[in-house]
Amino acid sequence: MALWGMVIDLDRCTGCQACVMACKAENNVPAVGAGEAVRGRIISWMQVLTEEEEGHPGEIKRFMPRPCLHCDDPPCTKVCPVYATYRNPEGIVTQIYARCIGCRFCMAACPYNAKYFNWRRYQKEAPGQNPDVSVRPKGVVEKCTFCHHRLQKARDRARVEGRELAPGEYITACAEACPARAIVFGDLSDPGSDVARLARSPRAFRLQEELGTKPKVIYLTEGEGHGRA
């Protein structure tokens, strides 16, 4: 069984936000508008955070793209009263909109602020959208799904062609778009995969590891060195 995960190399990342826009286009995440934005209601499954220099407020040290970290021990799923969010066998923390009752317990539980609430029906009937992803009505929580629909499509294709899913056949939209190739996506359970190799790098760290959430999005810190790992 695959264990899908992601490595983000902060040394390569330029903070350009191509990942953010690629995600919005892929998953039909609409702009909420200026009025909603000031209320802090922008939905951005992938978001570029900044980290400031200690003791020098305002001096940005680095950029940090943050999707849902797809924790192996996710705090959000445990508080969901209706089983709308759960960790699937392949490690993807999924979200079923039709089950969601909008209680937002999961948002409170997520230490990474990776979940977003639809305060209104933001998604409009508009052309140019991707028909492969589910529609989110008003009052449900949504978040990064590791572009789960791409896995379904890739798997269907493989099944029709009577073969196994090949490595690299399923990657997320953010990893595909990243101009610096800072985002590497793949199967963490396959020790030979790029993502597993990079995850073993001495530069690797996880966000707020002390919480025991075991995120499957692993960051590589900046620094001197040789080679990609």
Partner: peptide, 18 residues
Amino acid sequence: VHASQAFARLRRSEERPR
């Protein structure tokens, strides 16, 4: 895009130091 790719190579590539 081209510049970002080049920057990433400057920082991290298999065959040479950062």
